[in-house]
Computed example of a mutant assay.
Amino acid sequence: MVLSVKKSLYKKLLENLSTEPFTVTFWDGTVTQYNQGVPEFHIAIHQPLDTKLLAEDPMLAFAEGYMDKRIEVDGDLEYIIESIFNQQGSILNQPLALRTLKKFKSTGKKQSKDNVAHHYDLGNDFYKLWLDETMNYSCAYFQSAEDSLYQAQKNKTHHILKKLNLQPGQKLLDIGSGWGYLLIEAAKEYGVQALGVTLSEEQYKQTKRRIEIEGLQDQVEVKVMDYRELIKEGTTYDRIVSVGMLEHVGHVNIPTFMEHTNHLLKDRGVALLHCITGLVEVEGNAFLNKYIFPGGQIPSVRELVDGMSQNDLRITDMESLRLHYTITLRHWKRNFEENLGAISQQFDERFIRMWRLYLSACAANFTCGISDLHQFLVTKGPNNELPMTRDYLYE
């Protein structure tokens, strides 16, 4: 009787799961088809999921079911998730609107470092297996469909550096500098003095190694430091860049980030902020927060713009790279799958299934436009020296 009640609950939940026809095999061997037409994919539920969690957060329940092999899918995982995201009423497509910021506390410096370590300190050897040679772990820029991931990441880096309109001798600050590729390219190609800050010990070690290999110790520096500590040093910068870091700040800390950017930037200085964005403020995804990016929240365009305007950061350019991120993620997925042998020597099968789900869901997310990726070019106060057209970006 209990099992039949559970199965009826699943059938109800699955009725509006996807836009495509699909079949489900339940733990008792019975098969049900949903939607008319030839099935595009198949789901096998080998064991019932936690009923309480299923009621509270179906997305997390299904994600953990997949990770633990209680659920298997027959079909392209990204395509399946995309069909779920396209179904507006799907139980797995219900983002929670952020009604108030009061329940969120400002993330302390120790917590921020722990959150970063959870993801970025998995080991440089792991990331080297599926990122490209630049070790860029952010949206690439595909100037043509034939671009390799390596070429597209180089494109992205130099697209950013051109937007900044760097001049020899200027001071550049990179907040969340990753594995250091942008810092080094800025120093080599534009003759700037560059400082990068990161909370990841692994990224710090790799960046230090790269600086030494390039012989740029007098021009490039990297520190393990929370960006909120930089004001104490009293240094201001001609240019500031931050790539893929604002997603870790949290809604409540956006004003703090913009305030610090204002204080660290010289008058008429230029900053480029590259981050995932949403249309509206939503609470962090439970699966991503629990397993992938603790403390992560996608900022909305409007809260970013409001934070900028409150700190005299004037937008001179704003560009969406949403579809570039879909392609980037597909490259990462392919690299990840092609290196499963080496990855399985470092991590167990649950981790592999978790990351497969993460990369596939992110690709579907950008294809469906649930999230976007924007580059904001801002100046501190009016700057009359930047080129008046975008022609200089493509010379």
Score class of each variant (00 low, 15 high):
Glu82Met: 11
Lys205Phe: 09
Leu166Trp: 04
Gln217Arg: 13
Lys128Asn: 14
Ser144Leu: 05
Asp28Ser: 13
Gly75Tyr: 06
Val24Met: 06
Gly75Trp: 02
Tyr291Asp: 00
Gln345His: 11
Cys275Trp: 00
Leu101Arg: 15
Val249His: 02
Val241Lys: 09
Trp179His: 08
Glu78Ala: 14
Thr23Pro: 03
Ala286Gln: 11
Leu304Pro: 05
Phe22Gly: 01
Tyr66Trp: 13
Ile276Val: 14
Tyr325Asn: 11
Met225Arg: 13
Tyr392Ser: 09
Pro95Val: 09
Leu182Asp: 03
Thr367Lys: 13
Ile315Gly: 09
Thr19Ser: 13
Tyr66Cys: 07
Ala145Asp: 14
Tyr358Ile: 01
Leu265Gln: 00
Ile80Gly: 06
Thr379Leu: 03
Leu149Cys: 10
Val252Asn: 04
Thr107Asp: 01
Val2Tyr: 11
Lys109Phe: 06
Gln203Ser: 05
Gly176Ala: 01
Leu49Pro: 05
Lys171Gln: 15
Ala186Gly: 01
Asn262Ala: 13
Ser138Cys: 05
Met354Pro: 06
Asn16Gln: 07
Leu357Ile: 10
Phe104Arg: 08
Gly65Phe: 02
Ile276Thr: 10
Pro58Asp: 08
Thr32Lys: 14
Ser148Ile: 01
Ser138Asp: 02
His324Leu: 06
Glu337Ser: 10
Ser112Trp: 01
Glu146Cys: 03
Asn165Thr: 00
Pro95Tyr: 10
Phe287Asp: 01
Glu281Trp: 07
Gly108Arg: 08
Leu304Val: 14
Ile184Arg: 03
Arg356Ile: 00
Ser320Leu: 03
Gln219His: 12
Arg350Tyr: 12
Asp218Ala: 14
Gln36Ala: 15
Val197Phe: 07
Cys275Val: 04
Leu101Asn: 14
Gly250Lys: 05
Tyr204Asp: 05
Lys223Ile: 05
Leu166Asp: 03
Gln153Val: 03
Glu56Gly: 03
Asn384Ile: 00
Phe104Cys: 00
Glu146Leu: 08
Val378His: 05
Gln346Ser: 15
Met258Asp: 05
Glu283Lys: 13
Gln167Phe: 06
Ile175Gly: 08
Ser360Pro: 08
Gly89Thr: 11
Arg314Gly: 11
Leu359Trp: 04
Asn311His: 12
Ser371Ala: 11
Trp27Tyr: 07
Asp76Ile: 11
Ile240Lys: 02
Thr19Arg: 10
Tyr10Ser: 09
Cys139Ile: 12
Gln375Glu: 15
Leu149Thr: 06
Ser309Val: 10
Asp68Lys: 09
Asn289Thr: 07
Leu9Ala: 10
Phe142Val: 01
Lys69Asp: 12
Asn384Leu: 07
Asp226Ser: 11
Thr107Leu: 05
Lys290Ser: 09
His118Gly: 08
His46Tyr: 12
Met59Cys: 06
Arg350Asn: 14
Gln345Leu: 11
Ala363Asp: 08
Asp174Ile: 08
Ala55Pro: 00
Asp121Lys: 08
Tyr204Gln: 10
Leu77Arg: 03
Val301Gly: 07
Arg239Lys: 15
Tyr181Trp: 12
Lys223Glu: 14
Lys11Val: 10
Gln47Pro: 03
Phe376Ser: 07
Leu49Ala: 09
Leu393Ile: 08
Ala145Trp: 04
Gly29Arg: 09
Tyr291Cys: 00
Arg330Asn: 15
Leu264Val: 04
His331Glu: 13
Phe257Thr: 06
Leu386Ala: 04
Asp174Trp: 07
Asp348Phe: 08
Met388Arg: 14
Thr100Glu: 13
Asp125Phe: 09
Leu166Gln: 03
Pro95Met: 12
Leu386Thr: 01
Ser18Val: 00
His263Gly: 00
